[in-house]
Computed example of a mutant assay.
Amino acid sequence: MTEFERERAMPAPAERVFTVAADVNRLDEWLPGVITVHPAEPEGVDVDVHDPAGEYEAPGVLGARREQLRLEWGRRGSADYSGWLQVSSAEGGSSYATLHLSFHGDQLAAHGGSAADDVERRLDESLDRLANLVSAG
């Protein structure tokens, strides 16, 4: 298993950051790729993620735990990939967002090199976009 994690200070209270991050109509404004959302049962949503390079499409599921300020996701029908976003409060009305990805299968990112570098870059870009969204109001 290979794991990637990044944390970034956010210029807004934790509840606001989580509200923006969990808005299913805005997921593709901060996450990489094109994301199509479908209602799902039990609570949660089905998502289809289209890679920014157009190389693959992956069906997934997304769940929000509002009381914990946490989003969790993974691939539908496969345990080879999962991720989460955790938002926590900080002093002065700001917060921190931690973005974590786990690759459990034999995926390119699990072997290091340029694929792993690309995952790390996308984590940083996603947190930067989320910070820009919450600071824009």
Rank of each mutant, 00 (worst) to 15 (best):
His100Thr: 11
Pro32Leu: 12
Val17Tyr: 14
Val47Trp: 14
Leu69Gly: 01
Val134Phe: 03
Pro59Trp: 08
Met10Cys: 02
Asp117Cys: 01
Arg16Glu: 03
Met1Gly: 10
Leu130His: 02
Pro32Ser: 13
Leu62Glu: 03
Ala64Asp: 08
Glu55Thr: 07
His111Val: 05
Val24Ser: 09
Ala40Thr: 02
Glu57Tyr: 00
His104Trp: 01
Pro39Met: 06
Glu125Ile: 10
Glu43His: 11
Glu43Leu: 06
Ala136Ser: 11
Asp124Tyr: 04
Trp84His: 07
Val119His: 04
Val34Arg: 15
His38Pro: 00
Ala9Glu: 08
Ala40Asn: 02
Gly63Phe: 11
Phe18Arg: 00
Asp46Met: 07
Pro13Gln: 07
Gly74Trp: 06
His50Phe: 10
Glu55Trp: 10
Tyr96Phe: 05
Ala9Trp: 00
Asp48Trp: 12
Leu85Met: 15
Ala79Phe: 06
Ala22His: 04
Ala97Gly: 01
Ser135Leu: 10
Ala79Gly: 09
Tyr81Ile: 12
Val45Leu: 01
Glu120Lys: 12
Arg70Phe: 03
Arg121Lys: 10
Asp23Cys: 05
Asp51Gly: 10
Ala14Pro: 02
Ala115Val: 08
Leu123Glu: 13
Ala110Met: 00
Ala21Met: 06
Tyr56Ser: 12
Glu3His: 09
Asp46Cys: 00
Val119Ser: 04
Val47Ile: 15
Ala53Thr: 05
Ala116Thr: 10
Ala97Ile: 01
Asp124Thr: 14
Glu125Ala: 15
Gly54Met: 05
Val37Gln: 07
Leu99Arg: 03
Asp118His: 14
Ala14Met: 04
Glu67Met: 04
Ser95Ala: 11
Ala116Trp: 11
Gly105Thr: 11
Met1Cys: 09
Glu125Asp: 15
Glu43Ile: 00
Asp106Ile: 01
Trp73Leu: 04
Ala14Thr: 01
Glu3Gln: 15
Phe103Arg: 01
Ser78Met: 08
Pro59Ala: 08
Ala90Glu: 10
